[in-house]
């Protein structure tokens, strides 16, 4: 009896979930795809010979990240900065 009730509740739950998701499924999938595309571009662009546009912006962030960067690499067990172009100590 309890099993039947639980199954009915599960079925109802999946219907409600479908009611939530289905009307916007396509738009959300496209938004996710766009974000994934951007991510892939950022990750693989330099391998394909395309300068990574994000690096210019991260360069601007250097003064802000400087203190945090040193804390981060020492915490990670690296005495010196692991990046050649980004020396902090």
């Amino acid at each position: 009896m309890l099993q039947v009730v639980l199954e009915k509740l599960r079925a109802l739950g999946s219907l409600v979930r479908e009611f939530y998701i289905a009307p916007h499924r396509g738009v959300v999938a496209r938004e996710k795809r766009d974000e994934d595309d951007l991510f892939m571009l950022l990750v693989f662009s330099e391998m394909m010979g395309i300068p990574n546009p994000a690096s210019y912006y991260t360069l601007e962030m250097q003064p802000i990240l400087y203190e945090r960067f040193h804390d981060w690499h020492t915490r990670m067990g690296m005495e010196k900065s692991p990046l050649e172009g980004f020396r902090c100590c």
Binding site: L15, E18, F19, A22, P23, R25, A29, R30
Partner: peptide
């Protein structure tokens, strides 16, 4: 699985009605 998805008619009615 994104735009073209066969959907239970009660769920589809629910969307259509509330839309």
């Amino acid at each position: 699985g994104v735009d073209y998805v066969p959907t239970n008619k009660f769920v589809l009615w629910g969307h259509h009605f509330t839309s």
